[in-house]
Design a protein around this nucleic acid. Structure first.
Lengths: 315, 315
DNA sequence: CAAGCTATTCTGCTATACCGAACAGTTCGC
DNA sequence: GCGAACTGTTCGGTATAGCAGAATAGCTTG
């Protein structure tokens, strides 16, 4: 309609996506939507609605995905529901192996779980949050519900606090406030000043503790991982039931976690705990400009590793 | 390393591909190619060659995948290599949860590993082979290299033999021969008649044993899982080091594996070991009229496409 | 038995995403 | 130190891939 005017689509917002394939994006949308749908799966019309395409397009999409094992269907014509296919399990497994960070962390997590009996996790920062990237379940007993990709709060989880404690004080405070500092249990720290004091302690000893602050009866301890620039790139944490575990025991576990994190930091060429204590005063405000964000190198979204609208989003 | 022979069986479609989206298929090709590339990843031109598209198309494809976290790149302009992204780990995790079979099997595998100290796996049949679909690593010691999607041989692995032993005699024999019955160690059974005798024993006791037949120093025991039609749909297996483990111990473990498999079979509404012994004589040739292969659903290509000339009999 | 939902099939039009070729860096060979 | 040769990146024209919309078929409900 009207003049085609192929001039500059002038898309408001990010134009970092110059070479983006429309159809492929829809397919990825579909996969993520199916993942979010849970075990129940979704119906075709529901999916077509959510990704804003016609039913016929969604149908073709699903046929393609199913033919390759990336999706699966069940039920009869009227009761049909679509879910993810097992081809993705294979790729997900390969992705973990191919990720340098995960492949280095997994053996450490395994031996940590063997030694302590805790469920251990690797998380990476995403804005204020910590997203679970790898996990090793503890044997026996209950399994903690932590699917990969889960976003944990910064103010009430050990991994979140470990990541915060590796930042300058003001920045850590700002991130925590940004995420809301919502009360999860009676012991959740909801006051920014109290949190800052807790982070100071965490930075000084090299590990953070969540003592039933995120979930009743559950504690966890976490420590950050640093790259060769001294920037925090991840954190590991160990989770267990508070039952029969006195407080002093958590500090003992904290040291194990800190050592394990240092193993990975060392493999990355980063500074050990002792190094960090020496070179950078714990939790201090770093001199100079803090934010440093706006550079927008934009050559490609590769090296930054940060998705366009990640940090401030949330809503 | 070590050409484990069975390469892809990915059905090129040929039929039922009426509503297939080309662009999406290329994206999925890319992902599977990257997965096969291993930790080293691939270069752009290499990938463009393998999927038969121009470099510019492959570039756009990768940009799209990277923008969504489905792929990742590293290195500088000339040293750049592409690999899978961590978004796939999240989806793979979700796919496991959504798969009814896997979600039922995982708790069983966990407790089996807890109880026996073995590394346990869930496999599903794919033609003559058994592909690993879920896995629980044993604590400590060595980890056995078994990525998800690995195809195991029918004639020299416990899971493969357990699946064969759930078929009519002639069909099992044909499948094993089709897969080659290649010698993997000195103890590998390479004679079809000897294998059939071993399968008869396996069917009678309800579990199969691989005693260093696939890998030196490694044993495993496996048992099949049946659906409500009495068809084998999967198998579970436990793997351990032969070291210090006498033969009679393997039979003890076999009973545990068989019981665990029966738990899953029961959840599926299938016949227990005792039921099977009663209704169907072990490893007998079924009368020709039984609709073993052609399952009822199969409306679309949902159930796995089997390679054309597989030994499914009936023509 | 009809109403109302579902997944499928079909067809034409348009914009999508291919290709080929030129550009721009970086690392080799000599 | 220069050029050859390889990488990834950019750009436009063009055919085709894949979109929307409506019509069909199947099942479940009242």
């Amino acid at each position: 309609m009207a003049e085609s005017a192929p001039i500059e689509s002038a898309a408001p917002g990010g134009e970092a996506a110059r070479y983006r394939l429309h159809g492929v994006e829809r397919a990825l949308d579909t996969l993520e939507l199916l993942a979010a749908a849970g075990p129940g799966g979704m119906t075709l019309t529901e999916l077509a609605d959510r990704i804003s395409v016609s039913k016929s397009s969604a149908f073709a999409l699903l046929q393609t995905l199913i033919g390759r094992g990336f999706a699966a269907d069940s039920g009869t014509r009227l009761t049909r529901r679509y879910r993810l296919g097992m081809a993705l399990a294979k790729l997900g497994d390969a992705a973990e192996v191919q990720s340098p960070l995960v492949s280095m962390a997994l053996p450490v997590l395994h031996s940590l779980t063997d030694a302590t009996g805790l469920t251990t996790r690797l998380v990476v920062p995403d804005g204020p949050y910590a997203v679970v990237t790898a996990r090793v379940d503890a044997p026996g007993t209950v399994r903690f519900a932590s699917y990969l990709g889960k976003r944990e709060y910064p103010h009430c989880t050990s991994a979140g606090k470990a990541l915060l404690a590796a930042l300058p004080r003001e920045q850590a405070r700002a991130l925590a406030v940004e995420a809301g500092m919502q009360a999860r249990t009676e012991r959740t720290i909801t006051d920014p000043d109290a949190l800052v004091r807790d982070l100071e302690l965490s930075a000084a000893r090299g590990y953070a503790i969540d003592d039933e602050e995120d979930s009743e009866g559950v504690f966890c301890v976490g420590a950050a991982i640093f790259d060769r620039n001294g920037d925090r790139v991840a954190a590991i944490s160990g989770t267990g039931l508070k039952l029969n575990r006195p407080t002093w025991r958590m500090d003992e576990l904290g040291l194990s976690i800190r050592d394990a994190a240092d193993q990975i930091t060392d493999a990355l060429g980063g500074p050990s705990f002792a190094d960090r204590q020496r070179t950078m005063p714990p939790f201090a405000s770093r001199p100079g400009t803090i934010s440093s964000s706006s550079s927008t190198s934009s050559s490609s979204s590769s090296s930054s590793g940060r998705p366009p609208a990640s940090g401030s989003g949330r809503g």
